[in-house]
Design a binder for these strands. Structure first.
Length: 203
DNA sequence: CCCTGATTCGC
DNA sequence: GCGAATCAGG
């Protein structure tokens, strides 16, 4: 794949929106995150940080040659205004609408809209075995407490807690291959809906 | 270990 | 210009 005009546009858009290089790479396809990062730099739109922490120059202890190399952000010569359109929605994390927190029961999670992510079909308030129930309780205590932005293809996206408060995070345990949740959450989320199988029909 | 962006440097 | 390898960090 090559950097066609269109692909570059997507790259710019996504990068500006705060998407990570790997996300962009997956979206575009045919490129690695390294390629994306490399391109981002060549395009000169690397600095997503309006507040460039002026890094006090380190002692040229071991690399005199390196010190001479042009940094991405060159303080000297006229650099193009890349910080102009720094308006992209500064809140990558969608804030869920406040929800009445009246859930005394062992914190069963409420579904939250996660952009582009499969949503956890309610803990199927239906029939969940006591065993599974206990499993969940134990599991949630060991949750990695990932934030929305830390979720990846292989982190369990099961929401835990109340999205309206700070008491909210995602399970984060390793997902079952191809599934959005960890083993335990898959079991409660994607049940074959046959808790009560026919008592005799089967064969 | 998973992930992030940054930089280098051969192609 | 490109991007794998590598670096530095969370």
């Amino acid at each position: 794949m090559s950097w066609t005009d269109e692909r570059v546009e997507i790259l710019k858009a996504m990068w500006t929106e705060g998407k990570s290089a790997s996300q962009i790479a997956k979206e575009l396809g045919g490129v690695t995150r390294n390629a994306v990062i490399g391109k981002v730099h060549r395009l000169g739109l690397s600095n997503r940080t309006p507040a460039p922490a002026p890094k006090p120059a380190e002692e040229p202890v071991a690399r005199p040659a390196e010190a001479a190399k042009p940094r991405t952000a060159n303080p000297g010569p006229a650099r193009e205004p890349a910080a102009a359109k720094e308006q992209a929605t500064p809140h990558p994390a969608p804030k869920p609408a406040p929800v009445a927190a009246k859930d005394p029961a062992p914190r069963a999670a409420k579904p939250v809209a996660v952009a582009g992510q499969p949503l956890p079909p309610q803990p199927s308030q239906s029939e969940i075995s006591e065993e599974t129930r206990a499993n969940l309780a134990a599991l949630e205590k060991r949750a990695r407490k990932l934030t929305l932005m830390q979720l990846t293809e292989r982190t369990c996206k099961w929401p835990i807690g109340d999205p309206a408060t700070e008491d909210f995070w995602f399970c984060g345990h390793p997902t079952q291959p191809g599934k959005p949740y960890c083993e335990t959450h898959v079991s409660v989320a994607l049940q074959p809906m046959s808790s009560r199988r026919d008592r005799r029909a089967s064969r």
